[in-house]
Write a protein that binds this DNA or RNA. Structure first.
Lengths: 166, 166
DNA sequence: TATTGTTATACTCTATAACTATA
DNA sequence: TATAGTTATAGAGTATAACAATA
């Protein structure tokens, strides 16, 4: 027996009932849709943890890369993170304006500059990596160590496929 | 023994070598980073498949929901897809301007309108769902049926966790 | 000629506040 | 008072084109 909420409002178009659950159709079986929703969920949690530090995901990724690769050039950082050089400029400018990072002259190539964290930037990364660890632990707890390991492996397989358009 | 590429360019800052691979540090272990890269990879493939139809992911999701739930109101569609009502307006306007969807009066509530696809919109969705099936099959082939099933399950667990901020 | 960094620009997505016309 | 839809606006993210300085 099918029970449905009664609505006296809508008539001859047989439209959806106001309180009926929405049928996502083929959307619910699409990897891209599930990935987008999961990524938004994780990034919302990221934002909750990092809002106090005033750092967004893209900024975090730049800070971490410069922490582990001091002296990289803009083009290299951008390429490693999948950011276009042209968009990297204002992103880095924001970090530089806050005194977290800086450009230094490169001897032998006056076009380029080498990018470094300032001492303040290094301190900031140390703090952020602690926040990141707690943020990550929350999801690891939800998936279990094995589930998290499986997920990382599956995601890497998808990412690698991106550069091999079959 | 540690081997590293020689660079005569940079000196007393011991900066990274120009051609050395970039160390992503803790980024490579973060679920959020892996999710973002995987989602971008899948959406790039989506774009390759759907560019000829001139449909972006958000538009596709609205069309599919209206195909399977004719007569929904804007608020319901937006909520189901995680879009703010205010941002749904121009998104739907774009579909309406192309003759793919339309607003109809609701008898009994003159504030609201019921949303429907036009015949052209229904035809478009039929075509898009075929494109989506091929797009999806590409990634299913890369993961295997079992890997894809596991991935969907893990992603759902992350998404559900979003509404339970622990 | 090619590369590095940059400016200008535009479009999408996302977010908040505030308005209107209804209910 | 509350709700449905809308407008205006602003901030991020992402995209292309074009330029100057340098290699």
């Amino acid at each position: 027996m099918i029970m449905m909420p009664v609505s006296a409002v809508l008539e001859d178009e047989s439209p959806a009932q106001p309180d009926a659950p929405v049928d996502l159709g083929p959307l619910s079986g699409l990897l891209g849709y599930a990935l987008r929703r999961a990524q938004l969920a994780v990034f919302q949690d990221f934002h909750r943890h990092f809002a106090e530090a005033g750092i967004r995901p893209a900024q975090f990724s730049v800070l971490v890369v410069l922490r582990h690769n001091p002296g990289l050039r803009a083009t290299q950082v951008a390429a490693a993170l999948g950011i276009k050089r042209t968009n990297f400029v204002p992103l880095f400018d924001g970090l530089a304006a806050r005194g977290l990072a800086e450009r230094r002259q490169v001897k032998g190539d006056r076009r380029a500059s080498a990018l470094f964290l300032t001492p303040a930037g290094i301190g900031m990364v140390a703090r952020l990596e602690q926040l990141a660890a707690r943020h990550e632990a929350k999801f690891a707890a939800r998936l279990g160590a094995e589930g998290r390991y499986q997920l990382m492996g599956l995601l890497h397989r998808l990412t690698e496929a991106a550069f091999d358009p079959g």
